[in-house]
């Protein structure tokens, strides 16, 4: 097992409230090495909190997370994160952004540039080395962000709704490309999304979360004979999609009801 999430819960102290707010409750989930796992859930179910815990940016209130058998106790270059809002450093060029993670590792300047170039090519942005983020489109920026996270060669890639801010066409092409990169690099990927199609299209397994507090409701195995061609037109795609949709429907309704209560 690459990642073992064992009985993880997370509580926050909310401002001007006496009781603690439970974001995650008793999450147990294993991710195999080289697996592509997608995590879907209604908004506000604690998906991003779980990702923060995996990244080591925050620590769980209960339970523990193991990475390669050792507990996670802080951020590190064995995990790479891709954020929805890219989080590229605007004063650095595409190439220099990709080098960022390598600077923390003791990699020589020459090798840094070489590696960065390789990954820029991997994400299809050859020739854009010296562009600044503001000179790139949203899709290109996310490609640079993916390359940045891959460049320091982490075991695990954590992606927090990375394609949510992109237009549908760019999203589809990036999804395809991500699968290609995954197959090529053999990384373990945990991919958070609120899109059912995206979850089924990308994931070998889809973990469905409940609304507040976030728990794992069910893990759906998604198996296709081949991912070649128009996967979305496959009849089985529709079945998986419907299964996840049914699981999510009640949770989305519950999340709505709760929002209505807290707003009203």
């Amino acid at each position: 097992m690459k990642i073992q999430i064992q009985g993880v819960g997370k509580k926050f102290r909310v401002r001007d409230a006496d009781r603690l707010f439970t974001a995650l409750d008793d999450i147990t989930l294993d991710v195999r090495a080289g697996e592509f796992l997608t995590l879907v859930g209604p908004s506000g179910c604690g998906k991003s909190t779980l990702l923060d815990l995996l990244a080591g940016l925050d620590s769980p209130t209960t339970g523990r997370i193991l990475l390669n058998g050792t507990p996670v106790n802080g951020p590190g270059l064995d995990r790479g994160i891709v954020f929805q809002q890219y989080a590229l450093f605007p004063w650095r060029t595409a190439l220099s952004n990709i080098e960022f993670g390598l600077e923390a590792k003791a990699v020589s300047k020459k090798e840094r540039a070489e590696r960065a170039r390789t990954y820029l090519e991997l994400v299809g942005l050859r020739g854009f080395e010296n562009r600044y983020p503001h000179e790139l489109s949203g899709g290109m920026r996310q490609r640079v962000a993916i390359a940045r996270s891959l460049a320091f060669d982490p075991d695990v890639l954590l992606m927090d709704e990375p394609f949510a801010a992109l237009d549908a066409q760019t999203r589809e092409s990036l999804q395809e490309e991500l699968l290609r990169i995954w197959e090529k690099t053999g990384k373990t990927i945990v991919f958070i999304t609120h899109g059912i199609d995206e979850a089924v299209y990308l994931g070998q397994r889809v973990a469905v979360m409940t609304s507040r507090p976030g728990r794992i409701k069910r893990v759906v195995d998604v198996e296709f004979d081949s991912r070649e061609g128009d996967l979305r037109a496959d009849a089985r795609f529709g079945e998986y999609r419907h299964e996840v949709w049914t699981l999510l429907r009640d949770e989305v309704a519950a999340a709505r009801a709760e929002e209505a209560v807290s707003v009203g």
């Binding site: 951020p75 270059l77 960022f100 923390a104 320091f152």
Partner: peptide, 9 residues
Amino acid sequence: LIKSARSMG
């Protein structure tokens, strides 16, 4: 940006 840099240790 701070979060992103922190995540890289």
